[in-house]
Design a binder for these strands. Sequence first.
DNA 1: CCCCAGGTTGGAACACGTTTCAGATTCGGG
DNA 2: CCCGAATCTGAAACGTGTTCCAACCTGGGG
Lengths: 199, 199
Amino acid sequence: MTTKTNSTLTERQEQRRRRILQVSAHLANRGGFEAVHMREVAELSGVALGTLYRYFPSKVHLLVAIMQEQLQQMHERLRRRPPDAGDPAAAVAETLTRAFRGMQREPRLAEAMVRALTFADRSVSAEVDTVSRLTTAIVLDAMGLTGPPTAEQLSVVRVIEHTWHSTLIAWLSGRASIAQVTVDIETVCRLVTPSRPNP
Amino acid sequence: MTTKTNSTLTERQEQRRRRILQVSAHLANRGGFEAVHMREVAELSGVALGTLYRYFPSKVHLLVAIMQEQLQQMHERLRRRPPDAGDPAAAVAETLTRAFRGMQREPRLAEAMVRALTFADRSVSAEVDTVSRLTTAIVLDAMGLTGPPTAEQLSVVRVIEHTWHSTLIAWLSGRASIAQVTVDIETVCRLVTPSRPNP
DNA sequence: CCCCAGGTTGGAACACGTTTCAGATTCGGG
DNA sequence: CCCGAATCTGAAACGTGTTCCAACCTGGGG
């Protein structure tokens, strides 16, 4: 046996994958999480249902993969044009606020991705972890760290991420206003300023 | 017609409701969110499926109602025996850590409730709001506020709540350790200490 | 050129949340 | 005790995510 069980996808496979993601994002964009029907995704992607499930073992996997893509694009965008704020806290806040504005443009897509992310169970933990690492990288970038982050800083970033996801959920399900989201982001970002009075 | 369309439940109805919640909590406790099957809940509660849906319009409603109950109990418990920490931040942290220990005792039930809470869509927003208010009340209590909270304080409490839910999700789906959860709770609780150096 | 391992297809089937409905039961006022 | 309205029951049926499978296709090794 030669390299047949290769993790590299053939050209057609790569195209299939891309088409699936594209179609799914389109459906998510109109109608959100519940409007993404696996049968419809398969059909519009020109792929059998079984094949769809071979590429993405569940609807949640699929939507998390979309979020992964979006985050990668955003990461690049931010690298190209980083926030210009002065202190790290403001920079992180501006980064997240910018991301939030992006979501306001496509709220249903955002809802689909975030719902999938927080609804994901153990079987998706690897993919969710990837998303988490990407988000962490973005925030750390915004903080303009020099050298590896401390444990304290990692915890702070995690807290920021938690707040980010959860406040988005509240906003997307109509329980929080845009203003509230913005304020909460700024509030939590204050944590990055290491101004704790050590008694 | 006299007051028949009354929001007061009759005795039997109250019992039914209680029975349903009890059975659901039991099922959630073994197996978590996905192990709560509406048909089984109905059967074990001695109630027709249609009736179950009259009491709780969806599985998410049902599980959120359970969380509501648990929070009420916890609130009373905390009133009876408040945390003894010195400063507000430590008190909030201890309160949440105590709640976390409770969840470690019944992780699957916790998973069911928290998953339902974060997966809830607009149709459950009223109930989720109630849960949110309860949580807010608990945290504000722990802070030992004198007088009504400021907008700033409310935002802080919201951020704490966000972190609380989201870190729980991460723990329950195996992506965060107990230590991480604890550290993150303490980190976010530091926000309640208004020690920001105003430059 | 042939062959085979693995991928793809079409479609049926299953699981579970949710809806629906006609008939039986319960409730509270008269 | 009787009545009408609301509620409950039992069961079927629907929608959608997920699984399964037999037949077909593809791509690379011999």
